[in-house]
Every structure is written in C-alpha cells, then in structure tokens.
Amino acid sequence: MRFLLKTAFLTDKGQKRPHNEDQGFCREEEDKALAVVCDGMGGHNAGDVASLMAAETVEAAWNDPGEVDPVQHAATWLTEVIAAANHRIYEKANEVSAYRGMGTTLISAVADQEKVVIGHVGDSRAYHYHQEGLTQVSRDQSLVNELVDQGEISEAEAEVHPRKNVLTQALGTETTVTPEVVEAAWAPGDLVLLCSDGLTDKVADESIHDMLTRHPLSEAARTLIDAANEAGGDDNITVALIQYPAVETAER
C-alpha cells in the first residue's frame, strides 16, 4: 500500500475576456507530480503565445529532463526550466514584430511524497492546504506587493490599488529573470493549489479554503472557477491542483 499523488487542472476564459491567454497542465506519475499555470500578460501582444511557449518549455523538460532530475533536484530544475522559458519567449519576441512585448507569468510545482517545491515568476499564486488551514506559499512579484513590504500601503489598500496588476517580473520581457523558489513539507490529506489571478482577484482565501474542504479533488477545480465567474469573471481563470490523498492506494 502507498499514497499515489492525484492532480486536477481546469482553465476558463471568464465572463469578460474574448479569449483565454492562460495556459497550463498537470502530470501525475504515481508518487510524483507536476503542475503548471501560466497567465499571458493582458493588454500585451500575443500573451497567449507567451503563456503557451512557457507551458510547452516546462512540459518538454519534464518529459526529457536531461542531467537534472526534476524531483530529486527540484529547486535547481525549476530555476533552469524557468530561465529556459524566459530565454525562448524573449528571443521569439525579438524575432517577430507582432510578438514584441509579449510576456507571461509562470508558476510550477513539483511534488513527491516528501515535499512540494514551487518556482514562479509573476503574480500567479501557490497555496498549501493543510490541517491548520490555507497558506499562500508564493510571493506576488508585483508593484503593490513591494509597496506593502516597504510599509507604504496596507494589504487592504493593495487589493484596490489602481496599479495592482503591474508586475515587477514576467517571463519574456527581460533577458534574465530571478524566480522565487520555495519548498514546503506536506503530509497525507494536504493539497497544493496553483492559480492565475483571475481566481484570487475574485475569490477570497477564506472561500478558497472552504471550497477545498467541502469538495473532492474531482469537483474542486470546477467549483473554484465557477465561484470566480459568479463574482464577475473579469479575467481568465486557471486552477491546477496536486493532492496528497489521505487514503492509501493499493499497489497496481
């Protein structure tokens, strides 16, 4: 008997946007899993192209990891794959005039039965759902978050700040990026949520926690997206989940 990780992924264009610039996916391979969410920069050229390129870069590296094992050396692997995605998008943006200025966020989680390692650039978020509650484990790379850290505005003021969506880092806009990489231990019954800001701009953390508590993994992603749409659905909404099941699964 052992615990096999489970995943779920869902994306939706929301109620107001004409098309979906978000991309992402999940992969589960028995006792290891990968999740990715990319949010193409709204208002910029080809945000959907940038987000797709980022997701494809991570998927290709997962399928053919080379010398760095994605699970055993997850922090190094995530740092390298994020750098590769940034380089690829930046080069394409400079080669094709129609893509000039495109960019995307990227957040990715690599999990096994001991830990979850999360790497990200931008303001797409990662949350750890556990016995004590729901904890945001990523830090928004945004202008308002820097203002909060400097004590210039409160967290409540940040939520309604007119420059709330201005990022301090994104993939494809500069030659290099500095991803944030964090590691969290977890246990059976825990869950990791990755999401674009189309969810967190509309659904409070307390409501997210409540929905994850009340709904099984098979329903949770749809429930979260429905809640964001019911609250206005102003942006694309993407949710990726990795669950460490509380019940053992029989060996196949």
Results as ranks from 00 to 15, higher is better:
194 L>P: 00
159 E>P: 01
137 V>M: 05
225 I>D: 03
214 R>F: 08
168 T>P: 06
57 T>V: 11
150 Q>F: 13
161 H>F: 02
120 H>R: 02
123 D>M: 03
119 G>F: 09
117 V>N: 04
29 E>D: 14
235 D>V: 09
146 E>G: 11
177 V>Q: 02
149 D>E: 14
4 L>D: 15
37 V>E: 00
102 M>Q: 00
62 W>I: 12
193 L>R: 00
192 V>L: 15
148 V>M: 09
183 E>D: 03
142 S>A: 09
197 D>P: 00
29 E>K: 14
14 G>K: 08
39 D>V: 04
230 E>R: 13
208 I>K: 09
176 T>P: 00
15 Q>G: 09
230 E>K: 13
212 L>I: 05
161 H>V: 04
204 A>C: 11
182 V>S: 08
174 E>Y: 05
27 R>A: 10
169 Q>L: 00
49 V>W: 02
36 V>M: 05
235 D>T: 06
89 I>R: 05
58 V>H: 05
115 K>Y: 14
192 V>I: 15
209 H>F: 12
88 R>A: 14
128 H>V: 06
137 V>R: 08
116 V>F: 12
13 K>V: 06
128 H>C: 06
146 E>A: 06
241 L>G: 02
247 V>R: 12
164 K>Q: 05
121 V>Q: 00
11 T>V: 06
76 T>D: 15
248 E>Y: 15
25 F>A: 12
245 P>G: 01
